[in-house]
Design a protein around this nucleic acid. Sequence first.
DNA 1: TATGAATGAGTGTTCATTCAT
DNA 2: CATGAATGAACACTCATTCAT
Lengths: 194, 194, 194, 194
Amino acid sequence: MSIDNKYEMIVNASIKIMKAKGFDKASVSQIVKEAGVAQGTFYLYFDSKNAVVPAIAKRILNTLLAEIKKAHRQDATIYDTIETVVDVTFEITKEYKELILFCYSGLAYYHSLEIWEEIYQPYYDWMEDQLNSAKENGLCTTKVEIGPLARMIINVIETSAEAFYLSNQRSKETAINKDQVVIFIKSALTDYHS
Amino acid sequence: MSIDNKYEMIVNASIKIMKAKGFDKASVSQIVKEAGVAQGTFYLYFDSKNAVVPAIAKRILNTLLAEIKKAHRQDATIYDTIETVVDVTFEITKEYKELILFCYSGLAYYHSLEIWEEIYQPYYDWMEDQLNSAKENGLCTTKVEIGPLARMIINVIETSAEAFYLSNQRSKETAINKDQVVIFIKSALTDYHS
Amino acid sequence: MSIDNKYEMIVNASIKIMKAKGFDKASVSQIVKEAGVAQGTFYLYFDSKNAVVPAIAKRILNTLLAEIKKAHRQDATIYDTIETVVDVTFEITKEYKELILFCYSGLAYYHSLEIWEEIYQPYYDWMEDQLNSAKENGLCTTKVEIGPLARMIINVIETSAEAFYLSNQRSKETAINKDQVVIFIKSALTDYHS
Amino acid sequence: MSIDNKYEMIVNASIKIMKAKGFDKASVSQIVKEAGVAQGTFYLYFDSKNAVVPAIAKRILNTLLAEIKKAHRQDATIYDTIETVVDVTFEITKEYKELILFCYSGLAYYHSLEIWEEIYQPYYDWMEDQLNSAKENGLCTTKVEIGPLARMIINVIETSAEAFYLSNQRSKETAINKDQVVIFIKSALTDYHS
DNA sequence: TATGAATGAGTGTTCATTCAT
DNA sequence: CATGAATGAACACTCATTCAT
C-alpha cells in the first residue's frame, strides 16, 4: 500500500545483509529473501547489485548529518561543535561501521567516486560553514584552507571512529578514543608557530 | 629471494592481479597463470585465497616504512619528519592505492583485524619515537597522548593521500593536497589555548 | 486496420524486434514497449510468445505472394514467370531474411509444421497453376510431378536467396546469384534424355 | 582413460539434447547431466554454449560426406552419383534433421556464417569434381556455372530431405520424395532450348 | 479492455578448492 | 614438491506469465 514499500524493503534488507557480510559476499538472493520479495523485483528497482550501494551510502550520510544537526546548538562554539560531531559520528559509526567500510570499496570499483563526493557534499558544506564562523570568531586560526580543513577534520573523526569500533583495542592506552580526537582537532584549528 | 621461489612468485602475482582487479575479482586461476605455477601449487603455500592478503599487506607496509626511513635524516625536526612522511606516503599510495583499499576491506572481513594492527605496529612505534623526541624538544606540545596521536597522524596522511589519488578533484580549491596536510598536522602538534 | 488496432501494433512490433534479435532473444517486454501497450495487453491477443509466430509468417508469405502477383503479367511465359519470382523473392528475402530464418525454426519447435504448410498452400497452388499452363504450352516437359516440382522450385529460389544474402560471398565465382538460379530452374523444367 | 573422453561425451550429449530441444532451449545443465560431467567441465572444453555448435556441425557434415564417399562407386555416372547422394542425404537428414535446422540458426546469430561455408567446403569441392567429370562425359550440359550448380544441387537435396522428414505429408501426391528430387536434378543438368 | 508491478524458475558462467598422478 | 583436470555450488541477472486494479 505504501508508496515506496518494496523499494524501502529492499534497501533495508540490503543494509542488513551487507552489514553482516560485506558487499561482495552479500548475494541478491539473500537480500530478496530477507526483503520478502521476488528475485525479479530487485531488478525492478535497481539496475544491478552495484546500483544499491549509492542508495545505502546516501541513507547513512543523511542519518549522520541529520543527527549532527539535531544535536547541534545554534550558539555553540566550534569547540562544542567538534565535540558534538565526534559524539554523533562515533554513535553512527558504531551502528553502521561495516556498511561504511564496504561502501568505500563498493563505490570505489564502480566508476563512481564522484557519487561519493556528491553524497558528502552537504556535509562538507555544513562543516565549512561552521569553520568559517569560527574563523570570524577567532577560534580557528589555522592557515589550512577551509575546504581541505573540513575534509580532513571529517576524515580524522570518521577514521578514528572506525578504528575504535573495528580494532580489538588490546591496549587501552594506545587506542584512539573520543577525547583524544577532540583535542587533536581543537589543536589543529589553531596555528603553529614555526 | 631466489627467482624460483614459488612463494614470492605467488605473492608478486597476487599483488599484480589484485591491484588490477581488486580482491574478489582476482581469481586464483589468474594468479597462478601470472605466477607460472600450477593451480594446486597455490594451496601448497596458502591455505586459501584469503590467506594471501596479510602477506600482501605486510609487504606494502614494509615498503612504506623502509622508504620513510630511507628518506628520514637523523637530525630532522618533527616538522621535517612530517613532510618526509607525507611525501613518501603520497608516493607509495599512488603506486599501491588499489591494494591499500582492498586490503582494508579484505582484512576486515577475514577475522584478521589483529593482523592489521600487528603489521602497523612497527610504523606506530617509529612514529611514537619521533613524537617523543619532538616533545622533548618542545616542538610538540599537544595534550593528545602519544599513542593515539601517532595513529591519528598516520590516519590523516593516509586518508588524505587516498582521497587525493582516488577522487577526480573537480575543484582545485577544495582538494586536499600535500601542503594542506602538512600544515594541518603541524598545527595539531601544538596545543590550543581554551 | 485502424491505427489504434493493438493486435496489429503488437504484430508490427514483434516483426521489428524479432527481425533485429531473432525469436528467442526478442523479449515480450521489448515488444510491448515498442508497440506502446502494456505487458498484460500482449496476452489479451496472444496466448503466448510462440503464438505470434504464425501471424508473422503469414504476413511475410502474403507480402511475397502479393508482390509476385503484382509483378506477374498475364501473358508471361513460364520463363518470364520464373524470372519474376526469382526477382521478387530475392527482394523480399533481403528485407525479411532474419524473419524467414527464425520462422523456420520458430515454427518447427512449436507443434506447428502444419501451419507452415497451410500458410504456403496458396503459393504452392499458384505455382502449380503456372506450371500446368507451361506444360500445356510445351515449355515444361519434365517428368517431375507438378506438386513436388512447384515445391522444389520454390525451395531452390528461397534457399538460394537466403544463401545469397546471409553468406559473405568471399569468392564471386562460386556465389549463387539470380542468373544462375534462373538458368538452373529453366533447365530443370525440360526433361533429360537418358 | 581415452584421450578425448570428456570432450566427446559433451559433444554427444549436446547433440542429443539439442536434437530434442533446439539450440536455445537446450541448457548447459541438461547437457552436462546427460554427459555425466560437472557444470564447470563443459567450460574446460568450450568457451561458451555457442562454441559447441561448430563442433556439432562439423561432425554432421563429416558423417554425411563420409557416407556419401563410402556409397559412391568410382565408375559411377553423374546420374548414379545423384541417386547415391540423394539416398544418403535422406538417410542422414532423417537422423539429424533437427540438428541441421538449429545449426543453421545457431551459426547464423554468432558472427559465423563463414564457419558454415568452411565446413561445407570439402562437400562443395567433391560435388564440383563430380560435375566437372560429367561435363567432360557430356552428361552435364547446363550453362549454370559449376560452383553455383554444386551448391544448388546440394541445397535442393537437403531442403527436400528436410521437407520430407519435417512435414506431415498429408497428401501423398504432392509430397517431395527421393524419386522426384532425382529426376528434378537430372533434368537440371541438361540445358533447356529456348 | 487495459494495465504494469510482481513473480520465481531458469539461465549461462565463474571459481575456490580437491585429488589422482 | 608439483601438477592441472575436474568439480559443483554459487552467482547475477532475465523474462514469460499472472493478477489485482
